[in-house]
Design a protein around this nucleic acid. Structure first.
Lengths: 208, 208, 208, 208
DNA sequence: GATGAATGAGTCTTCATTCAT
DNA sequence: CATGAATGAAGACTCATTCAT
């Protein structure tokens, strides 16, 4: 097996294990059993256990950033309404999380108590999500699509919390063998938006 | 020192440590250093490390249940509007979390990767919160205060996620030396409600 | 067993093992087998393997420094000849080394390739010996007892090399069950002095 | 690259590494990085790590033996004085050591704690040096050039200890970029001889 | 009850060596 | 011959738990 494939195989096993058992209860022994390799082989591809974990979260993070940036580039800001824009954002993120329940679980549910460096990668991820939502809210306020009376910090946290929880709820706890269909994700997105829409957006008549 | 006081002292130290360092990175050595007691003494009050942790979360859980039940008993359901009822619920929960940032942190941010029995106490806690919110939503639907068109499960998850995140955001990450005042909590509550209210409740005119 | 006794017992075993097998080939397992204790017990008294080794060398070093300083205080510099002074110095050092062949071996024969911190304690020891010899030589030159024509640096290195090798030769390689007698050490000292004396000191007639 | 050159290249790198880091802290990985070859290639030229180390020391030993024997053959024993004979011996040895500081370091400073077979090659080297010095002393005694009263064993140990330490002191610790000149080595030799000569040899008047 | 010395199963990590390509 | 992926025995260190005093 080539180096890249082997590294990928190790990561694949590690993702499943970290998701199911968490950082501390996933041992190198588990990984080598799962991947059917020798103990030393792991250390040919990763410096240590932390390195494996960080690689996983960082890769997931990078993919998400790419997805978000790419989708933004495709949007025609003249023809899309603020509501549709938000719906699009929410849908894409949910869609992304839905693609890999294990990665979703690792990224969203790893709490405190991890080694310092590991912990940082997790919190960076969550901070970034919330930061982007806050920026979007401010942008919407400038364009008079978002009420200027809302507490942006709190609203961003609400949206983040709700979003991450929805993701975890459906894609981890209620995971489906074959994943969620596009239709199902759209339905979740619509329900999500219908909860927030009136509270966040100014009524249609008042918007430009 | 009497037995009860000693046990309480150990728990107090353990709460701070578990909150700051998490389950795995909090060692019995840390606890005995902090509590200024001998190693063996811990095992006269607790069976093992898990027992300490579970005692902490369970105590917190029981307090919350008591608070919720007690507050419910005081409400005059004839004179309170659905909106005010929800506002009240949210405010009480936030208030409760705000009382002990360490307990709040332990309860809300301990992810997966804990020993099985420990993990259960955490998820039981979160399930219960979401269950109560879902029940409240259904009750509201029966009383025509909550739109029958909403996805109850999802909305409950949204509210739970937003709620837990807000709690963590303000009471753990942005914790204040002297805790939050009643006024500040009210402000957070109002902001929280204003985000959700129109999306969740039917417009006032249509309600009875 | 009390803490001090236990620590002493561990050190005693470690000294013998380090002397016989060197740093790298002495394993914690060897020490616990020899000392009849559990693995963890070692780590109650020492941070790690390095700590054990450094403790041994540092203790030996401190003893030597004390001996050297103490002996110096007892000397009557008015009545002692330079030759006798040197003989005294040599005898004391040889006497000291002869007391514990294992410590002698550890201190004198541990070469390069040890962990940085460990390596430092060894080289500190050797540097100190050579420094004291160089100081003695300079003092002798000021008092016209030592030829001013000698290369002090080189001569100090010669004396150090010869002294340490003699110590190792007799007290480690040709070690005796019951140690060397005072008489035997005196004989070695005299032989040692007789090799160097005429080459180092100015002839008696020319000295004051 | 031809086989011989390749083997030589590996040894060259290994010498530098063993000298700087010692036996245990020099890993096969270090050698292959330094030599820019593949891991397996090392094992086509050497059986194992010990084999590399032993090859290095043995080669150095053989060179030294050749040098010593060759030099001995050139000496006209009728015209050379005992003092000049010793000076010649010392100069040649110092000269030899000065040629390769790394080999000098490996041969002179590798202490105990090496694998059995490795340890033997080192001690063989040192024993041989001391043996030759002892033989020279005895020869000198037969020719009445060396005092018959000296303790030959001790004196040989002194000379060996001093000689090796001088070599290490100047050629390793105070090594020079371009090596030592013949003139500098002569100076060291003269200083060395002047320390020992009068103490070892019978006064000139008494010699034949 | 309180103590703290002792325990040892359990983990991560290292690194010389092998062998199929 | 050269390569480098794979191996796995071996070693240091951790830490919750026990128990004699």
């Amino acid at each position: 097996m080539k180096a890249d494939e082997r590294k990928e195989a190790i990561l694949k096993c590690a993702i499943r294990l970290f998701s199911n058992q968490g950082y501390y209860q996933t041992h190198i022994s588990d990984i080598i059993n799962e991947a059917q390799i020798a103990r030393g082989t792991v250390y040919q591809y990763f410096n240590n256990k932390d390195d494996i974990f960080i690689t996983i979260v960082d890769t997931f993070y990078d993919k998400w950033i790419n997805m978000v940036s790419f989708e933004l580039a495709k949007i025609d800001f003249n023809s899309i309404s603020a509501k549709d824009y938000f719906r699009h954002r929410i849908r894409q993120t949910l869609n992304f999380f839905s693609l890999d329940p294990d990665l979703c679980n690792i990224a969203l549910r790893m709490g405190i108590g991890l080694p310092e460096k590991v912990s940082q990668t997790i919190s960076r991820f969550e901070k970034r999500i919330m930061g982007i939502i806050a920026d979007d809210l401010k942008l919407g306020q400038q364009n008079s699509n978002i009420r200027t009376t809302i507490n942006v910090e709190l609203t961003a946290a609400c949206l983040t919390g709700a979003l991450l929880r929805i993701a975890h709820h459906y894609f981890v706890k209620k995971r489906k063998q074959k994943g969620y269909t596009k239709k199902e994700i759209d339905a979740i997105t619509d329900d999500f938006i219908s909860v927030f829409i009136s509270g966040v957006f100014v009524p249609r008549e008042e918007a430009k």
